[in-house]
């Protein structure tokens, strides 16, 4: 290792300790009972309550259902959302058409209106549509995410116009250009988008809380919130549930971050 390498790695490692420390605390907390978690001095070593916390979560609180619901909902809206957002981003970045600036501006401006004031009317829509307690209620409003459209628009600006023209001259239709030329070179940005869409849906709390009505339909954050009481909260179970909710996202991230390998685009432009 060069001196620079040692220095940089050490520096990044120190930062990583700060980033991960709360997570380590969380992992240790999953092995303790509520009483032990908040004792002073804090427990720095694992305890023995992990299996009790875990079985409490799954038998008393239907946490298995919550994980299933969250996985189905998040995976579905991620897959659909990636296509929908990148198609829109592509249109905004690579086409000149009447209303482009206006439509993009309206979508972006809608993002600035806090969700707390649009929650009630959105709930009314779901009541009218008869979708309370259903997957569509959770998925459909979370597909056209302004953030995702914006992300893809910015990323698509990096795609060279020559690449598209070359494909069109070769006789490729617009759909083929998008699916077979644009999307493959966008893999890093699509991975980032997928991570963020999944995360956004996975962590969404207030809106699912309002439209879900029975414990078997709860998503993970709603199930975790139901563990909170006034004079009694099982923090052992609560933190174990939080830990379990972190793991799938980290696995997904670990899997997708491989796409961030330098020079992906360089190769394809050369061809």
């Amino acid at each position: 290792m060069t001196r620079l390498s040692v220095f940089l790695t050490t520096f990044i490692a120190l930062g990583a300790v700060i980033m991960v420390a709360p997570f380590v605390w969380l992992v240790i907390a999953t092995t303790h009972t509520t009483g032990e978690i908040f004792s002073t001095p804090p427990h720095l070593l694992p305890g023995t309550a992990f299996w009790d916390n875990l079985s409490g979560l799954f038998t008393e609180n239907r946490f298995g259902d919550a994980i299933r619901n969250s996985v189905v909902v998040s995976a579905t809206s991620t897959v659909l959302g990636v296509f929908i957002c990148s198609a829109a981003g592509y249109a905004f970045a690579k086409f000149d058409f009447p209303g482009r600036t206006l439509i993009f501006g309206v979508i972006l401006a809608s993002m600035t209106l806090p969700s707390q004031v649009t929650l009630v009317p959105l709930f009314q829509i779901m009541v009218s549509a008869g979708w309370l307690n259903s997957y569509p209620a959770l998925i459909l409003p979370n597909l056209a995410v302004p953030f995702g459209i914006f992300l893809m628009r910015q990323a698509m600006q990096g795609v060279p116009d020559e690449l598209l023209q070359a494909a069109r001259i070769d006789g490729a239709g617009e759909a083929r250009v998008f699916f077979q030329v644009v999307l493959p070179v966008m893999r890093p940005a699509l991975s980032a988008l997928a991570i963020f869409l999944f995360l956004g849906q996975w962590n969404d709390f207030v809106y699912p809380l309002t439209v879900l009505r029975t414990a078997d339909a709860y998503t993970v954050p709603v199930a975790l919130a139901s563990l909170q009481g006034v004079s009694s909260t099982d923090y052992g179970q609560l933190l174990t549930g939080t830990f379990l909710s972190v793991v799938p996202v980290l696995i997904l991230f670990l899997f997708l971050q491989r796409q961030f390998v330098a020079g992906l685009l360089a190769g394809s432009v050369k061809q």
Partner: peptide
């Protein structure tokens, strides 16, 4: 890869645990 995941951990932690 390890460091990327480490720095990504905070965004995943739920509000209550946070």
């Amino acid at each position: 890869a390890f460091f990327r995941v480490s720095y990504f951990v905070p965004i995943v932690m739920g509000l209550i645990a946070y």
